[in-house]
């Protein structure tokens, strides 16, 4: 049995390396993205092997389930534009069009060799360091186990994430919101994309799937207190539902107002900040939770964060702010309501 597992580990490690190599050197970006998705799925397997089911779930849902479609959507947007251009643009004027990223690295091969040699050295040094670090490696497992009873949850990962290192998680939720604000600041969402082939079957399937997905997301959030799951995994599942809605061209989506969306995006961080302030008021310490109420408070926090995370991830996929966002311009007088006005 042990032999078998070791063999499995070896196979998994080699496959991971092979996939990574393939995805970085294949000439076709589309293929590379597909390799990346496979890579992510195998990574989840590796997490399971290392007894990290929470990470496995997050990797499958966020790392692959969402990042893969993000890449595919971006590729489609870039190539669609580039393709149109290459058809109308005469050849030889390539640096401004879609091919601006391609070619151009043939002549820098001495530099390439230097970089290759340097990275090989780096790999060697790092691996050598790992091999000589004395074992067993120290860690914080005992401290976590010792304080788990006071944290209000049974899952040690959730306890670390939301209670012991809750400040980290608050900043991390802020990073997510920051990402959403950034995406909104860069461009308008290219929706509605006028997909002509949203078939009635697809729409019906989405209608059926949607409640189910939401249910699973909610269950994952709720379950986070006891076993594998939590706000991030649940939020990612929720975002899958929203992504399905986006690509199925539901009519009410393009007209989505900005304010409710912003409220949803900031709900999780706001609840987190309120909880932090509550800690100062009641326990005189930031983010400190009264032991007897810690469980319910954390569940409430997880629900709010899960909702916001789901919305944020969906906003990443949409790739921009809603169309209505520039219309409520408070300043400029006559030019209001002309929609996307910049460049």
């Amino acid at each position: 049995m042990k032999m078998l597992l070791t063999g499995f580990d070896l196979l998994l490690a080699l496959t991971l390396l092979w996939l990574a190599w393939q995805l970085l050197r294949s000439t076709d970006i589309f293929k590379a993205i597909i390799f990346f998705i496979c890579f992510g799925l195998l990574m989840s397997l590796a997490w399971v092997r290392m007894h990290a089911p929470d990470v496995a779930l997050a990797e499958a849902a966020i790392g692959t389930g969402l990042t893969g479609p993000l890449f595919l959507a971006a590729l489609r947007r870039i190539e669609r534009k580039a393709g149109k251009n290459m058809m109308s643009e005469p050849a030889g004027n390539g640096e401004e069009t879609g091919s601006r990223w391609k070619a151009r690295n043939r002549e820098m091969s001495p530099l390439l060799w230097t970089v290759t040699a340097l990275t090989c050295c780096l790999a060697g040094l790092l691996i050598w360091t790992v091999l000589i670090i004395p074992r067993p490696l120290p860690g914080l497992a005992d401290q976590v186990a010792g304080s788990l009873a006071e944290s209000g949850v049974n899952n040690p990962v959730t306890a670390v994430l939301l209670n012991f290192r809750g400040y980290d998680t608050l900043l991390e939720v802020m990073v997510l919101l920051l990402g959403a604000i950034t995406v909104w600041s860069i461009t308008h969402a290219p929706f509605p994309p006028r997909v002509p082939d949203t078939s009635p079957v697809q729409k019906a399937a989405v209608r059926l799937l949607l409640p189910l997905i939401c249910l699973i997301g909610g269950y994952l959030v709720w379950q986070g207190a006891y076993q594998t799951g939590g706000a991030f995994q649940g939020g990612a599942v929720l975002s899958a539902a929203l992504v399905l809605l986006l690509i199925s061209d539901f009519l009410w989506l393009p007209g989505m107002r900005s304010l409710p969306l912003r409220l949803g995006l900031t709900l999780g961080p706001l609840v987190f900040v309120l909880l932090a302030g509550f800690g100062i008021l009641v326990e005189k310490t930031l983010l400190r939770l009264p032991v007897e109420y810690a469980g319910p408070l954390l569940l409430f926090l997880e629900a709010a964060c899960g909702l916001s995370i789901g919305l944020t991830l969906a906003a990443f996929f949409a790739g921009g702010r809603p169309a209505s966002d520039l219309r409520e311009t408070p300043y400029s007088g006559e030019a209001k309501g002309k929609g996307p006005a910049e460049s």
Binding site: M174, L178, I181, T182, W184, S185, L326, T329, P330, Y331, S332, A335, K338, P340, A341, E342, S343
Partner: peptide, 24 residues
């Protein structure tokens, strides 16, 4: 910038997103 926009809407967008980003 908003008084004399070079392109309508652009300074508004910049200001709107500047404040939250700057605070972060």
């Amino acid at each position: 910038r908003i008084e004399r926009p070079s392109r309508v809407g652009r300074p508004e967008r910049q200001e709107r997103f500047f404040w939250p980003l700057w605070m972060l």
